[in-house]
């Protein structure tokens, strides 16, 4: 279990740790979109990509994620990255492109190399960003944030609170159930089950011998848990107060503006390649930004009424 480094919360007291999880999710999405925007020239792609990478590195440092940790979670991806590189180099690019080098009669084009580099850059940035989110935010806070984003759906009777409660309980029980998996596997191994080797039919049996006990105990657990929750006065239909209150600070506003600004800037650059604003694009950008802001405000208002 200790091997899982990706997505693990690392307690630390940093500015990013203290940020409002709702805002963190927003910023993450904004930055991810920014990372995935394409540009018409390679120069622009790598200048903007490099700047974003620089920004992400700063974030990593600020949130106290060691690069060792980051590379640890990238490990399973190295193989994919290499394959991507090779495949991309093998396929001749569309359109004209200078030849970078030749192996025998086979030509490798600059465009292919750039294309692969772009994909790798995006992949690494995307993983780093999600890691920043999960490493600096307690899983429970993430579910609270999720619940907040889902509040408007309560109008169409979507059980936002129940969904969030279910997720938070699932999160709480992951370590417990992993321990259980380990114990059952060991118990069955002691009875001669080999989970790693053997024919498909024996492997199937091995898996059944793990899954069935696991389900039985999970059902029993859920029953007992439901009893415990009910006995302690839990009723999903009833109003509840909140121990955890998510609060939006000045720094959050700053982060919010920074990330929206970054996203806006990349969109503009992508659209206009440094040519100037044209009236046809500006309204679209303004409207979409306004929509996000109004949505968040509205949810905030509804939420404060539901919870208080």
């Amino acid at each position: 279990m200790a091997k899982i480094t990706l997505g693990r919360y690392v307690p630390y007291d940093s500015f990013i740790h203290r940020m409002d999880p709702r805002n963190k999710i927003f910023c993450l999405i904004a930055l991810m979109v920014a990372v995935f925007i394409s540009y018409s020239t390679w120069e622009l792609t790598f200048i903007v990509g490099g700047l974003l990478a620089l920004f992400v590195i700063v974030l990593l440092i600020v949130s106290h994620i060691s690069f060792k940790q980051l590379f640890g979670s990238l490990k399973p991806l190295w193989f994919m990255i290499i394959i991507l590189l090779v495949i991309n180099c093998l396929i001749p690019p569309r359109g004209e492109s200078p030849i970078a080098f030749s192996i025998g009669s086979f030509n490798v084009y600059w465009n292919s190399i750039f294309q692969s580099l772009k994909i790798i850059l995006r992949l690494v940035l995307m993983i780093s960003l999600s890691m920043i989110l999960t490493a600096t935010t307690k899983p429970l806070d993430l579910t609270y944030a999720l619940e907040w984003y889902l509040t408007p759906l309560k109008i169409i009777k979507f059980p936002a609170h129940e969904v969030a409660m279910t997720i938070s309980i699932a999160l709480r029980f992951i370590p417990t159930i992993l321990t259980e998996v380990e114990r059952i596997m060991k118990a069955q191994s002691s009875r001669g089950v080999d989970f790693k080797h053997g024919k498909i039919s024996t492997k199937m049996k091995a898996i059944i011998s793990l899954i069935i006990p696991l389900f039985i105990s999970a059902f029993q657990r859920s029953e007992e848990l439901a009893d415990a929750m009910e006995a302690r006065g839990y009723d999903p239909k009833q109003k509840r107060t909140r121990y955890h209150k998510l609060s939006f600070h000045i720094l959050d506003i700053f982060a919010f503006l920074l990330c929206s600004g970054l996203l806006g800037a990349t969109i503009i650059m992508s659209h206009y390649d440094f040519t100037f604003f044209t009236p046809s694009f500006l309204p679209w950008f303004v409207v979409s930004t306004l929509f996000i802001v109004i949505y968040c405000l509205l949810v905030g208002i509804i939420e404060s009424r539901v919870v208080s």
Binding site: A187, Q188, S190, G192, I208, S209, P213, S217
Partner: peptide, 16 residues
């Protein structure tokens, strides 16, 4: 494994 039989705690959980 055949020589040494190991019965875990709450071993009833291994029945399937």
């Amino acid at each position: 494994r055949k020589k040494v039989g190991l019965v875990f705690q709450f071993s009833e959980n291994q029945l399937f």
